[in-house]
């Protein structure tokens, strides 16, 4: 028998009985980061492959959503801070060891670059558009000359951003459920998948939809594979990691994870996309929305579950048995 009590009654708010450092803000921030990474990645890749006109929604339209989505993500991050007035401190230091730090810097680089990228397409999409100031028009013309370079930079930054949303969590050795290197690739894949979902939602072109449906199916397949590996890795690891996995294999997260994330967010859209390719009439919005919602719930569950998993004593016993 092992029984552990805190007899002096530690009840630090936000820490006891279960850690609750992060609420809804961080998962939302991670989700938006993933969506943005997905949109930018495909926009830049298909631009470089000369598909700017064939895949107009992916290359030109979707990036227009990036600046507002990023702003929303940064707002969520800001709302999460408990010492908000000191926010600027994030940008007076660069600390490579801290994912929080390099993530914040990556966002700072992506923000202007993606805004510039999206801006160069505005005139092509809305020929009537006028930037009002001569200098902006000049800037627009100048930026257009560097699209190739911008695209390469965006691919690079999008992959970093997508991975970062997972690494932010997996860097925490203290939370066994987060402590797996699978989270980086898993969140990147999920981010790319939500990116394709955005394209599916706005595209009106049959060819483009078909391409992104196929891409999404492949990404969902990879996600399922990574999720299986995640649990295999945990089950083959130390006692605390096995405990962490059990939260999803019979424990409190079992129902919501397997039904909402895996069932509704991955298998069902996969199924719908397969049927659609086979010629059944299924509105493409359905799988797209499911993928987006599934991706959001995935972030929420993983952020929450990580905080419920721990190395030390006390509540572990009560929680599982």
């Amino acid at each position: 028998m092992q029984e552990i009590n805190i007899t002096s009654g530690r009840m630090n708010p936000g820490v006891d009985p279960l850690l609750h450092a992060w609420g809804w803000e961080i998962p939302l921030y991670l989700f938006l980061g993933g969506v943005v990474a997905g949109i930018l990645f495909f926009s830049a890749v298909y631009y470089l492959r000369g598909k700017a006109n064939d895949y107009k929604a992916a290359v030109k339209i979707a990036p227009l959503f990036v600046p507002p989505l990023l702003a929303l993500g940064l707002l969520a991050l800001f709302l999460d801070l408990s010492h908000k007035l000191y926010f600027w401190r994030l940008y007076t230091t660069i600390r490579w060891e801290s994912p929080m730090s390099w993530g914040a810097w990556t966002l700072l680089l992506i923000f202007p670059l993606s805004t510039a990228w999206a801006a160069t397409f505005v005139k092509e999409l809305y020929p009537q558009w006028d930037w009002k100031y001569e200098i902006l028009n000049k800037l627009d013309d100048w930026l257009k000359k560097y699209r190739t370079q911008m695209a390469w930079a965006l691919i690079f930054l999008a992959v970093i951003l997508g991975m970062y949303t997972g690494i932010l969590l997996s860097a925490f050795n203290a939370r066994p459920f987060w402590n797996t290197s699978i989270l980086g690739p898993l969140f990147l894949t999920s981010g790319l998948s939500t990116g394709t979902a955005v394209v599916l939602l706005i595209s009106k072109n049959h060819e483009e939809r078909k391409r992104f449906s196929k891409l999404d199916m492949a990404l969902i397949g990879i996600e399922l594979f990574l999720i299986i590996h995640l649990f295999m890795g945990f089950l083959a690891s130390t006692e605390v990691h096995i405990h962490a996995a059990h939260m999803f294999l019979g424990g409190p997260y079992t129902a919501v994870f397997w039904s909402f994330v895996v069932g509704l967010g991955l298998l069902l859209p996969l199924f719908a996309e397969v049927l659609e390719l086979k010629g059944y009439k299924i509105p493409v919005q359905i799988p797209a929305i499911l993928v987006l919602v599934g991706g959001l719930i995935l972030r929420f569950i993983i952020v929450d579950a990580g905080q419920s998993s721990r190395w030390l004593y006390k509540f572990i016993e009560q929680m599982y048995y």
Binding site: G14, H83, Y86, R89, M100, N173, L312
Partner: peptide
């Protein structure tokens, strides 16, 4: 305290749960 932005990364990183957010916002 004056450098802390209250991101709570350190709280999540401590295997001993030794930290908390002070009501004034810093850790």
């Amino acid at each position: 305290h004056d450098d802390c932005i209250g991101c709570k990364a350190c709280i999540a990183s401590c295997p001993y749960d030794a930290r908390y957010v002070h009501p004034e916002g810093y850790v």
